[in-house]
């Protein structure tokens, strides 16, 4: 498609992303001189050995996690909004994140309810993402089946919200029968955290994320045809059913794995695609996909920098910060008189 040249936009965003990446890494409870930071990152030796450990084993994986989580959730939000042709769709609103939470809750809390056979103390690297993805997929499929019957997009959103409440109800019941330590474990997970990942876990996360994003690239063409509605897409030779299923599969895997490793993070997936559309004034997914990925990564790096409350030793739950940031954006979108787009 012929379009304006967005190269400048992309260069500007990329530079900003790098800046915020370094801002994010240089902030924390221990202050590390920027020179030592660069030294460590470039494979050199810092003045203190502890600084090196802090940067390489804590701050760097956390910043990378922030980038993966932010861009991944934003891509999911974009996919959902185009698929449902609804500007308020997103992994959180449609109950997909709640589904992932349910998967994790069953894994962590269920072990005391259903006995030890599920998983006892140690939750292995793979079980958490698998449980979360399964939960996400389950709720998303239920929403889709319902969507086939009602077709009205408003009803679909309400159904998504209902599934969200249903899953939280199930989680409450599970929590009621669980032991305090497990409830605590689940509660901390649900606050959201970007910092708990070892390099080992990060590589699993990165691998699944990479596969998901690769799959998304193959969707650019069908996504653009979906902008005309399903019947036109079909008449353009697009296999609507197949592509819809691929979109759902990718969204549930990405949301599942992100939620598994970082907890349910609200609003990023909903708000970032709108910011991208405002900045780029385009609906073309060739432009929007890289745009939401860049902006999403940046937004989460910023939120995380705020969450660590620089120079203090406290860290706020990341989920609280994204909501504080995201909710006003969504309200502003709805109140604003201009039209909102898919």
């Amino acid at each position: 498609m012929e379009h304006k040249n967005y190269t400048k936009h992309f260069i500007f965003l990329s530079v900003l992303l790098v800046v915020f990446f370094f801002v994010n890494i240089s902030l924390g409870s221990v202050s590390i001189p920027f020179k030592d930071l660069l030294n460590t990152l470039s494979g050199g030796i810092a003045t203190k050995e502890s600084w090196q450990t802090i940067v390489l084993d804590f701050r760097l994986p956390k910043a990378i996690t922030a980038i993966l989580v932010g861009s991944g959730l934003s891509i999911c939000g974009l996919l959902m909004q185009t698929l449902f042709r609804n500007p308020l769709a997103g992994p959180f609103v449609l109950g997909i994140s709640s589904g992932a939470s349910l998967g994790v809750a069953i894994l962590i809390l269920g072990s005391s309810v259903f006995g030890g056979f599920l998983l006892t103390n140690s939750v292995s690297n793979w079980s958490l993402p698998i449980a979360a993805s399964l939960g996400a997929f389950l709720v998303l499929s239920a929403v889709i089946i319902a969507a086939h019957k009602v077709r009205n997009t408003m009803s679909i959103l309400i159904i998504g919200l209902m599934f969200g409440s249903l899953t939280s109800a199930v989680i409450s019941v599970l929590a009621y029968f669980s032991e305090a330590t497990q409830i605590q474990q689940y509660l901390f997970w649900s606050f959201g955290s970007l910092g708990n990942l070892s390099w080992n876990e990060l590589s699993i996360f990165g691998l699944i994320y990479g596969l998901g994003v690769l799959g998304t690239l193959s969707l650019i063409k069908p996504l653009n045809s979906f902008l005309l509605g399903e019947n036109y897409a079909k008449s353009l030779g697009i296999n609507v059913k197949k592509n819809r299923n691929i979109i759902l599969l990718i969204t549930s895997i990405l949301t599942g794995v992100i939620t598994a490793f970082s907890g349910p993070i609200a609003f990023v997936g909903l708000a970032v695609p709108h910011i991208a559309r405002l900045l780029f004034t385009s609906s073309n997914h060739k432009i929007l996909l890289p745009a939401v990925a860049l902006i999403g990564a940046m937004v989460l790096l910023i939120c995380d920098s705020i969450a660590q409350l620089p120079t203090s030793e406290f860290t706020l739950p990341i989920n609280a910060i994204t909501s504080l940031f995201g909710a006003p954006v969504v309200i502003w979108l709805l109140v604003r008189k201009k039209r909102i787009f898919v």
Partner: peptide, 28 residues
């Protein structure tokens, strides 16, 4: 078709260009 197009920011040129989808490559 008679159905309304979903709201989007597509330009007229982009909309017409979507007609070429049966012939374009995977990235349009």
């Amino acid at each position: 078709l008679t159905e309304r197009l979903p709201e989007s920011q597509l330009t007229v040129y982009e909309l017409v260009a979507l007609g070429r989808q049966p012939y374009t490559n995977w990235i349009d």
